[in-house]
Design a protein around this nucleic acid. Sequence first.
DNA 1: CCGGCGTATAAAGATTGCGTTAAGATTATT
DNA 2: AATAATCTTAACGCAATCTTTATACGCCGG
Lengths: 233, 233
Amino acid sequence: MNKPQILVVEDDTAVSNLISATLEMQGYQFHAVRTGAAAILDAASFRPDVIILDLGLPDMDGVNIIKKLRTWSNTPVIVVSARSEDRDKVEALDAGADDYLTKPFSVEELLARLRVALRRVRFDTEKVSDAASVYRNGELTIDYAAGCVYVGEKEIHLTPIEYRLLCLLAKNTGKVLTHNYILREIWGSALPSDTPSLRVFMATLRKKIEPVPSHPQYIQTHIGVGYRMLRVQ
Amino acid sequence: MNKPQILVVEDDTAVSNLISATLEMQGYQFHAVRTGAAAILDAASFRPDVIILDLGLPDMDGVNIIKKLRTWSNTPVIVVSARSEDRDKVEALDAGADDYLTKPFSVEELLARLRVALRRVRFDTEKVSDAASVYRNGELTIDYAAGCVYVGEKEIHLTPIEYRLLCLLAKNTGKVLTHNYILREIWGSALPSDTPSLRVFMATLRKKIEPVPSHPQYIQTHIGVGYRMLRVQ
DNA sequence: CCGGCGTATAAAGATTGCGTTAAGATTATT
DNA sequence: AATAATCTTAACGCAATCTTTATACGCCGG
């Protein structure tokens, strides 16, 4: 394996420099960015092995960055945050972060936790070839990095849940996803009361992406089971 | 997936009880042991999905437990320790631990980090099990992961009960399944009134998968007993 | 050849689950 | 605090599915 690539997302220059200097000294290759938007773009284009993410960025909420990332990537995320409340930790970890360090942190500990993350990447590299950052299926295009969805040439607007739902289906094109699985993935815990909600979202999603919503081309219903994204053409 | 299995290794009764009670409340299955020797034994026999390990055990050094474990297992290990020195953390993490929590810890945080570890386990096993999830018999193909059935190249649509019925027969190819057994497996309880229903389902299933439904190739009737899936070709 | 037994098949209800709409509640935005 | 966007909930018509019922078929011993 080549030199590990690390993406550092941190707006505080002092901390960023500290981390960068440390990584350099350890022989890692890295990119440093200062905003959430840049983080998402870089995660897609540079394909880092691990992401070190500060939660307190100026432009986006850190948890939302993680969620957005997790729609298409499994790259380990180590959160570095000034917030030390349990709530913050739980929220970030449940959103998909792999580890959480509270500032001020020890450089040694960060490096150790980084090694843990890299160990895992090495372990399951090639087993799960990380998805591409653009998904195409028929007329449908999802640009994960930008968070945009197109039907043909036209960009369409999706609400957050609609977007995550579509990504989930797209990531599992060809597989039937059960209601419970979808509910767990999108809502976290499967409150059975949310099932009707899922139907509503499917309806609105189909209205936005299907040429003829009453005869779905992309999203197929499996009655009594769940839904499935079909490969078109 | 089944209930996650957790192994708790902790000699302090108070902490052990706290963790156990919490796990129980969350619906996890767990074993609690008090020594390093027992931990190694249980990790081998019990095959937990995650191990929660206290470093300060009476009989062995915690780091050595991890090292020993890592010679043959990749089960995620979450360390819980009273030592908060960087040296200890680095040592444990580099020995193969996946996470390190310092006592006193918040139960919420432990649970969140546990979920992170379980997420990884589930992900790994999913990818592995995918390979063995296709059944082939003559022209018949069942893709368990995708939940689809093909006859030749053509996908055919099955209702939930038809699908479960076919899977049941397929998983017992060559064996005769009695009416009662099938009724219990598919309907849960064997109400004898459902037997005619079973016949109807067999008929529709045969119509969908058999080239000549009146001369079944796959599903054989054993009069007075039940049905059997035959190995074709 | 007949009649009983168990099965296959068809068709007719009964039931369940889905899609859709719209209104109310919640959350984000300004 | 007001407004807009989003999410949740409830209701209802409709379609798919399941169960039931009825009839026909084949096998076997008399």
